[in-house]
Design a protein around this nucleic acid. Structure first.
Lengths: 351, 351
DNA sequence: GGTGTTTTGAGGTACGCAACTCATTTTGAG
DNA sequence: CTCAAAATGAGTTGCGTACCTCAAAACACC
């Protein structure tokens, strides 16, 4: 009837007895301290494995003494998505302090590889873990590797640097996100034929480029009725995005879909709204973008926007902290838990 | 630059000094033990609040000694969704044992109020917390309230009993889920007119009834081109669902959408597939259901199913454990973290 | 003022582990 | 076999809290 999922708790003392060694030796093995013969190491590890022993996290944490320090390196400037991540970290304050964890924010110009690399280098030695919204650039990669070599745990957040030796990436698969956006637009457009516009910040940004790649993939293979127009690079700026888009609408009467890859949503929405006002009775342009912010929430409720591809900033913030903590403690990571899902948000499932 | 989110750590000793009392008195206040004058209680609580003191969870956990026991009361029988929840709890084994938490599964006939209530009553006193997939029935409600009165923390899982005094509900808003399903079908059907079929387990099940309610709401107000057919009650059985649906397809040539509210997916898919085979060239029926299982995953990839409304069983399992733990420890609950989102899963964002 | 009761202080032990010291034993090289 | 180096044992201390005991102080009541 009642089926227990957890074995009885053992302590280090039990393991020492099992392995026929002293507590000190078990401790040395457990923390990779030198001065233990390979054969003894093996015996101890076997005893640990045989009993599937887990050190009591509470006891370990208490015995450590010093608090753990984590740094979050994030872009400076008014990016609503990043502000949300910060806000969620703030909401965790009680949770963090009950565990004696210190989390600090470090703002830096994330579009400037040298500045970002310098910010990372400056953290060396002072922190147990670092989460960074990274730029995929050789100097940034080198800075990350240096941190790792110094024993600091590093996770990349939102934007990955796969070629580095970071311990973990907390964020979505952007190619799949782009595919999802494409499938949504294709399906929501329905039977109609026409053109689809894309507005991105820059194709030089890894996540934007990946999203566009996935988007085009789906469009080409599944929706022959739709043709994709060249990507507009709005630099995530409202005005620039609006102007480029307005010009595009002027030149193409048969645009049925619009994919906004990055920010600059305010401008995109304005251009789209102006178009809608001037052409009463026509079919609506299907508009899909990214992230649930105060603005996109409003646009979804108004019906101007049809869907937002979201990556739950709260989950990302918490996952980053949990992963850093697990790495620092040497605990296994609950990969299923820390995986960031691609959320499709429409008006009726707005969180 | 570096902005700390967490204050410096204090200990109970500091609070005692601050309040001008002894450690013993602080301890009495903290644990609501008797024998402290109201005025002294106030002084101590003020000192705690003034310094926003948080007991060190690790120390508290270690000092407790005994392990915490949680029970998960879930339906017996081969329900894939419930099996997934169990599987995810199994994956947490290391995490649980490192925290000296014991989680036990209790299987019971969840469709039988008396049996469920008896199972719950039997747990009284033995557990620190109970998670239960509940049935909304007076005797179940009474059993839950008895547990709560006995000091056991109770969370309802997947299916709520709002009228009880359970501490928390871990699950989705099923009305919103139904609305989401409706909006999806309406949007994916596009310009076409026609009828929409609904297959549910039973309208007596609270979650099914709520989903249907939300679904009809959206259909009535937003998609005048679609008319909803009477609900088929398939009792979550494959054969019965298939037969009822096949008959319905026979009687109505213009069905353009299908909403499967519960299980019995295998039968629903078979009926739908048979229909598709017999009518080449016709427009596809838009099919939306619930939960990502091995089966729905396959149907999504095949294109027979268009979207699944999902409630991430892994997240629900973990959230239930975390909430029970936080409740038992007296910690605040990270409501944003524990909230279960309504996921829209299509082929390209299959998790 | 004396009585009994309530409130408070002081102190101890235990929890399981990290991190350290120092003495002792084992090992391997010469 | 000798001796230094390496490996191991034995033990201590401290982390911050829970929980307990016992004595002292403050209080209420007559």
């Amino acid at each position: 009837m009642a089926d227990t999922l957890t074995p009885t708790a053992l302590t280090l003392k039990d393991i020492a007895r099992e392995a026929g060694v002293s507590l000190a030796t078990v401790d040395r093995v457990l923390h990779n301290r030198p001065g233990v013969r390979p054969d003894t190491v093996r015996r101890v590890k076997e005893a640990i494995a045989r009993n599937s022993f887990q050190p009591h996290v509470a006891a370990a944490e208490l015995a450590r003494g010093r608090a753990r320090r984590f740094a979050f390196v994030m872009p400076s400037g008014p990016n609503p998505f990043m502000q949300q991540i910060e806000a969620y970290l703030g909401e965790m304050a009680a949770w963090l302090s009950a565990r004696r964890l210190k989390v600090e924010m470090v703002a830096t110009d994330v579009f400037e590889p040298a500045a970002l690399a310098a910010s990372l280098e400056a953290l060396s030695g002072d922190y147990d873990g670092v989460a960074v919204v990274a730029l995929d650039h050789p100097s940034v990669r080198a800075a990350i590797n240096d941190l790792v070599d110094a024993g600091t745990k590093v996770v990349t957040l939102v934007s990955d640097v796969p070629s580095s030796r970071r311990h973990h990436y907390v964020g979505i698969d952007n190619i799949a996100a782009g595919r999802t956006a494409g499938a949504l637009i294709g399906r929501l457009v329905g039977q109609r034929s026409g053109k689809v516009a894309i507005v991105a910040g820059s194709q030089g940004l890894r996540d934007h480029a990946e999203r566009i790649f996935g988007f085009n993939q789906v469009m080409a293979t599944e929706f022959p009725n739709l043709s994709v127009l060249p990507v507009l690079e709005g630099r995530d700026e409202d005005e620039r995005s609006e102007q480029m888009l307005a010009r595009l609408f002027g030149g193409h009467a048969d645009i049925v879909g619009l994919y906004n890859v990055g920010a600059g949503t305010q401008g995109v929405a304005k251009a789209l709204n102006d178009k809608a006002l001037s052409e009463t009775g026509r079919d609506k342009v299907v508009f899909v973008g990214h992230d649930v912010t105060a603005l996109t929430r409003r646009l979804l409720l108004q019906g101007l926007m049809d869907a937002a591809i979201s990556q739950n900033p709260g989950h990302e913030a918490r996952a980053a902290v949990r992963v850093l903590l697990a790495l620092a403690r040497g605990e296994p990571i609950l990969s299923e838990q820390e995986k960031i899902r691609i959320d499709i948000v429409m008006r009726d499932n707005l969180p």
